[in-house]
Design a protein around this nucleic acid. Sequence first.
DNA 1: GATAAAGTTGATAGAATCGGTAGAGATATG
DNA 2: CATATCTCTACCGATTCTATCAACTTTATC
Lengths: 148, 148
Amino acid sequence: MKLSQKTKYALRALQVLAREREPVRIATLAEREDIPRKFLEHILLELNNHGILSSRRGRGGGYQLRKQPEDVCLGDVVRLFDGPLAPTSCSSERAFRACDDCKDPDGCALRGVMREVRDATARILDNLSLADLNQRADAVARLTPGGR
Amino acid sequence: MKLSQKTKYALRALQVLAREREPVRIATLAEREDIPRKFLEHILLELNNHGILSSRRGRGGGYQLRKQPEDVCLGDVVRLFDGPLAPTSCSSERAFRACDDCKDPDGCALRGVMREVRDATARILDNLSLADLNQRADAVARLTPGGR
DNA sequence: GATAAAGTTGATAGAATCGGTAGAGATATG
DNA sequence: CATATCTCTACCGATTCTATCAACTTTATC
């Protein structure tokens, strides 16, 4: 499961939005996080359409988190942009599909292995919220004051 | 880390070669495992060039495992065809590279998370050999006799 | 209600990757 | 030498990824 640029941008933007609880304009986000503006529009729109963000148009508008930062987990974001966590479709929990050339998924030894990988990944990403992520970032920042 | 078709083909071929300790022809492997022949040539060649297989040309030739089935782990095969196990280059152990747009890898909270994912994946794939995989396949086959 | 700020949408495009094919070349064996 | 087999280089079509553009719609404020 290679993380796409899109997902990385999304998570960076969400980290900001999890802190600011006021609407933030696309332009501001794009500048602060150094994300191509037009590309970011797509990303935020998709997050909006999936109920993670809400938007307000017009003056004073922008995007803000619709849920609580504790209630958005990394797994959800990754799945939204990069698809199922599982390495093969046959090992996916939420999006199972037998592999095209697989005669018998239940007799496939590889599938068992890949289910282990998926489960391990999901255990990490589904138990980590935006709030946790920001908390970690703060913890690291305290350890290396001055940054860079 | 989505598993490519190439990797799946490679593992299927290796499972066969881990059982037969005689040279097996490309054509035979392609037929038995239902893999496009020309595509399989590439795959076996790459495994050969990386010291996992050895080859013999001419009559009676073919490919065979160069190492012991216990000494080839899934992690090696996956890395060969699909690249590093880590979800981001900055979280890779063997192929670390700072992300293009990352100012400070050490201060990146996401990186820490992705290292956890990488480690969990590696722990599974690097501790499982071809021999283990075949053993698992046999175990499943015994549970569902008749197959299919 | 005019106007401007802001989000929404669809089309497009270049680059990279993936799955696969073609064919000539090299080499071992009988 | 003839044949069987692997080796190597090039190429192709489809898809995905990243990103950009232009046009449109909605809303806040004056």
